[in-house]
């Protein structure tokens, strides 16, 4: 990839405070195109807080986030349109079917992916037989799949920020998701993710960031 030398997202001297506790400080990271970053650390070490700072949902206590080399706050629109964040909450409505959910998520994100692409993503992630049922009658893992189907339909975002994407998934779905992640990296995208499960993702360049080193 030609852009592999330029950084996609970069943070310098980042520190995060929650309540009266300092979660981490002095954290630097650089992530370029095609790179996979696994954020590790014990429970409560600030993994979710770091991911929320990387996508702009939270403000860091100190330090700087840069998007494609510019201060992220000054290129906010470009930053938002370049990332896709999936938190541990699924953003799935009980009263909507999987397709309605996926359409609503795409619309809210301002993403104009056509309906047949969304439908194919749901079939690919193994919800083909459950397309017409409201999400309230889906299992926890199936609801997670509805949220993750956005990744399969996504071609716009450069950076995926995934908080515990493999939670509640069976081995089949884990395989589909890790293939989608590998494909995103091969396209020149980058991924930051957290997980407590060992999952093999095919990536040419990978980093591991252990937050326990920065506490």
């Amino acid at each position: 990839m030609s852009g592999s030398t330029a950084s996609l997202i970069e943070v310098r001297a980042l520190s995060c405070v929650r309540g009266s506790a300092r979660l981490f400080s002095g954290l630097d990271l650089i992530l370029g195109a095609g790179e996979l970053m696994h954020v590790a650390g014990a429970n409560g070490s600030g993994k979710t807080s770091l991911l929320r700072i990387l996508c702009g949902l939270s403000e860091p206590a100190s330090g700087e986030v840069r998007w494609r080399g510019a201060p992220a706050a000054s290129v906010r629109d470009d930053w938002r349109s370049g990332l896709l964040y999936l938190g541990h909450r699924n953003a799935v409505k009980d009263d909507f079917t999987p397709l309605e959910n996926l359409r609503a998520s795409a619309a809210i994100a301002g993403d104009t992916t056509p309906g047949d692409v969304l439908l194919r993503a749901l079939v690919d992630i193994g919800l083909g037989a459950r397309l017409d049922v409201p999400a309230r009658s889906l299992s926890q893992g199936q609801r997670r799949r509805v949220a993750l189907a956005r990744l399969l339909a996504d071609t716009r975002s450069a950076l995926w920020i995934l908080d515990e994407p493999f939670t509640a998934l069976d081995t089949g779905a884990v395989a589909v998701l890790s293939r989608a992640m590998a494909a995103h990296l091969a396209r020149g995208g980058a991924i930051v993710y957290t997980t407590h499960q060992p999952v093999d993702i095919n990536a040419a360049r990978r980093q591991t960031l252990n937050l326990d080193d920065f506490s």
Binding site: G87, S105, I108, G110
Partner: peptide, 22 residues
């Protein structure tokens, strides 16, 4: 309330569209 509880609100904040319009 329900958008906050299920995480949809986060996605609204991250939208490229202005939050005020949403």
């Amino acid at each position: 309330e329900s958008d906050e509880a299920d995480g949809t609100l986060e996605q609204m904040l991250l939208s490229v569209e202005p939050l005020a319009v949403i």
